[in-house]
Write a protein that binds this DNA or RNA. Structure first.
Lengths: 336, 336
DNA sequence: CTGAAAGCGCTTACAG
DNA sequence: CTGAAAGCGCTTACAG
């Protein structure tokens, strides 16, 4: 099957390629009669625009890229990313854009190389950047490369973080208030890597919400993995620091922490997770967690990027508030 | 930053564009001296090949596509797909190919439309097809479209399924033998949709392995979701059919089945899952499961597709055998 | 080994 | 409104 081109359509109809192009793109410059003939013929011949020809002449790739740089082994366990991708992909496909996906693991710099290559080859029109770090080099690099980008969870133009979309603060309030109502006055928060901007935000927000309620709070840093969370909880238990409830920055760590508590015979301690998943739903005991609607967050970021590429202004809807799903680990504080 | 092109390099060096192209692509037709000058200049100017220009002149997109057509909500819960993607992506990026990802949900025909569009636009050079169904229309459609493809889990040229890569039979043997050794002589298998080829394969394989060992076996069809599996197990318990062990075709259903058993007070029944995941690891009780190395399977399929595109012959390594991870649900049969 | 030229399939000023 | 032509940045026969 030789590809059918606009030259074929033009030849059949005895008009110029230019007219065909204008007609097919809904642009001015053709009579309505010609346009209809062209459109009909294109349908009859089963014409599709050549993606690469269009990309070359328009210098647009009609694709946007995402680089996932968490540990691949962990990616599979965190439904958060799949749901995020789902939202992104949904918006992109409606807009006729493709999603290019790249997983680079945690080796530093591998993501940078991908961006450089994508920019150099003109393979994507823009990228969505995840997991913003403190002093993240990526915004500056992408700006230098001339590759448009959106920081997932941050409104463009506010890279400083002044107007976070993912309102960590509201989430922290939900979690802390819940524990407060259960009677907890001494808690600990097992955070993810504090090199990540949103983890710092979470810690600060938790600190503030606790201060308001006169709750004593401890922090321990882990890296989202089972093993580090298990270790941190075990250390806390042995440290003499007292706490009756734990906040975990993701589901895997929550499950790990529960295991550590059980292994230490501290089964009466309450726990909440910042991320929900089937893990929270089916672990033993089941874990109270925040449903954060990552698909909607993905949809927002994709929409913003497309608006940015089109030079339109932001009319992005307000972020969806999270919901707290209460489960078995929402234990009341033991009476003092 | 205006793009630097081979014309720029040619001009600076006073040679032709053709020489530059040959040099940069490592082809014959240039002297070694010229080649080195060209390569050095390209590096100095920070040249990258324009992806779209190359695609247009070579008529290759240097991209392969995957359409995921399971329920997006479920996709997030099944690490199987993320791990599969990881393997695919790894092979592709080593080969300088991109991965185009599309999620279409379960609406029939939406995947077909994507393939037609990709083929028409020349957006991908080939696709990896997942979840082959009985009488699957996709192979014929893709052949008609002239879009090269690999059926994940099937050796090309054996679409009939004569030589499955994912050896469901060996997996069935592992599971059934395990239950047999624990003393079980009456079991039931909660399958996924029997419209999927590999689910039929699994059922047949389980039937055969049971027959060999004189094990009585029942089958009940579910659709990989929690709710259907819960319902099937509840029905089985109420049916009067006796069984002391259950096989589930995925992790989510295993967890659902355990819940159904617990709710019915049938806690002594053994269970195994065909897929492993953190869910099996942290549910209560923990679930014995097959580690099937989906990343390796993805790597195989990607490798095969690239070989197919290059017109090379298969030198794909043998599939990795699965491993049984024994956990708490590996209960011995109650003595009769 | 090297250069001039045509071609991949579109888009888009530029004349008529 | 319409057509002839140049251009996007490469690749690749084709002469020298």
């Amino acid at each position: 099957m030789a590809r059918v081109t606009i030259a074929d359509i033009a030849a059949r109809l005895g008009v110029s390629k230019a007219s065909v192009s204008y007609a097919l793109n809904g642009q001015a410059g053709v009579s309505e009669a010609t346009r209809q003939k062209v459109v009909a013929m294109a349908a009859e011949l089963g014409w599709h625009p050549s993606f690469s020809a269009r990309a070359l002449s328009r210098s647009r790739a009609d694709a946007i890229g995402m680089v996932l740089r968490r540990d691949p082994a962990l990616l599979g366990t965190e439904p958060y990313y799949m749901r995020l991708l789902e939202g992104v992909e949904d918006v992109l496909s409606d807009a006729g854009q493709s999603l290019l996906l790249r997983m680079v693991g945690t080796t530093p710099g591998r993501d940078i190389a991908v961006y450089e290559r994508w920019a150099g080859e003109g393979r994507v029109d823009g990228v969505i950047v995840l997991d913003r770090a403190i002093d993240d080099p990526r915004p500056a690099l992408l700006a230098k490369l001339g590759l448009p980008f959106v920081l997932h969870g941050v409104l463009p133009g506010n890279e400083s973080g002044a107007e976070r979309i993912e309102d960590q603060h509201r989430d922290a309030q939900l979690l802390v208030e819940h524990l407060f109502e259960l009677g907890h006055r001494r808690i600990a928060h097992i955070t993810g890597p504090l090199a990540l901007a949103h983890e710092v935000d979470r810690r600060n927000a938790v600190r503030q919400e606790c201060a308001v309620r006169d709750i004593a709070v401890e922090f321990a840093e882990a890296d989202y993995t089972f093993d580090t969370a298990y270790a941190r909880v075990t250390e806390l238990l042995g440290s003499g620091i007292r706490f009756t409830a734990l906040i975990f920055s993701n589901d895997v760590m929550a499950v790990a922490g529960l295991r550590a508590l059980a292994d230490a015979g501290a089964r009466d301690i309450a726990a909440v997770s910042w991320d929900d998943s089937m893990l929270c739903q089916f672990s033993y005991p089941t874990v109270t967690a925040l449903e954060r609607y990552p698909d909607r967050a993905g949809r927002r970021s994709a929409t913003m990027l497309l608006e940015l590429l089109d030079g339109r202004s932001w009319n992005t809807a307000a972020p969806s508030p999270s919901t707290l799903v209460v489960r078995e680990t929402s234990r009341a504080a033991a009476s003092p």
